[in-house]
């Protein structure tokens, strides 16, 4: 499956909460096959402060419209500039990059666990998991109720459980405190979010011997396995997050 450099066209840019926005970008030559968990390397404007590309995971794919959606949190100068994109603007990307989540089998019970903006790669995964005939549930964790991101699309693929650290909505605490997360016997848990959150979910899954994959977001330069900057320590030594990941089975990580 070929990677390519392409100018996508912005179809929509919607702010979904303070500091979070959802971009939809269209391919004029037709989308390549994109697997759940893959990402794009997005060029900002190559100005001094935004010299490198920004890796952004694919939030959703719409083959009828040849568009990809990207859920982005404004964290620095690069994402701040991207937040100002308008319909019709171009977005230069390298894609599709990275490996993908391992899809579940028919009838399997899967849990998608997303922390904040970490829910980004889980929507497209959830849709694919449903197509595979899996039963999908979603657990999303946020700092407080005002930080909750629009999860209406997740509702269409399964039951959604919310946890907030201050208890202003849903379960007080973390995803690992949600009763459904703790009590059910999941066949698979897929996870993306801040590293401490992923580690605690990986620990919970490991203790119960549940298949668990996490999507990492290490700092990257190239995104195609050339620079060896984004490495993670695994049972096989240092491997590139951009090519061997971003999705890793927790058994291979030295957490």
């Amino acid at each position: 499956m070929g990677k390519r450099v392409e100018d996508l066209i912005i179809l929509a840019n919607r702010q979904i909460n303070q500091g979070f926005f959802l971009l939809e970008a269209k391919s004029l030559i037709g989308l390549p096959v994109i697997l759940p968990g893959q990402f794009l390397q997005v060029r900002v404007d190559n100005a001094p402060q935004t010299f490198l590309r920004r890796p952004l995971s694919v939030h959703d794919v719409n083959y009828e419209r040849d568009s990809v959606s990207l859920l982005v949190q404004v964290l620095g100068e690069g994402t701040r500039m991207l937040s100002g994109l308008k319909p019709g603007d171009t977005l230069n990307v390298i894609y599709p990059l990275g490996n993908s989540f391992t899809l579940p089998g028919k009838g399997e019970r899967v849990m998608l666990a997303g922390g904040g903006c970490g829910m980004a790669p889980l929507l497209y995964l959830g849709r694919k998991a449903r197509e595979c005939g899996a039963e999908v549930s979603v657990a999303l964790g946020f700092r407080n109720s005002s930080r909750i991101l629009d999860f209406s699309e997740f509702r269409k693929i399964g039951e959604v459980f919310i946890a907030t650290e201050d208890g202003t909505e849903g379960t007080r605490g973390f995803i690992t405190d949600i009763p459904a997360f703790r009590e059910s016997n999941w066949d698979r848990i897929y996870c993306c979010g801040p590293e401490p959150m992923m580690k605690s979910i990986a620990k919970a899954a490991g203790e119960r011997d549940i298949f668990c994959e996490v999507s990492l977001e290490n700092l990257m330069a190239c995104g195609i396995g050339a620079c060896l900057c984004c490495v993670v320590n695994t049972s096989e030594g240092h491997v590139c997050t951009c090519t061997e990941g971003p999705v890793f089975n927790i058994r291979t990580l030295l957490w």
Partner: peptide
């Protein structure tokens, strides 16, 4: 190689 993090973006360049 060295432990992560091993890269930092800097103005018009990068450190590795």
């Amino acid at each position: 190689g060295n432990p992560y993090p091993r890269m930092a973006e800097t103005p018009s360049g990068m450190l590795n």
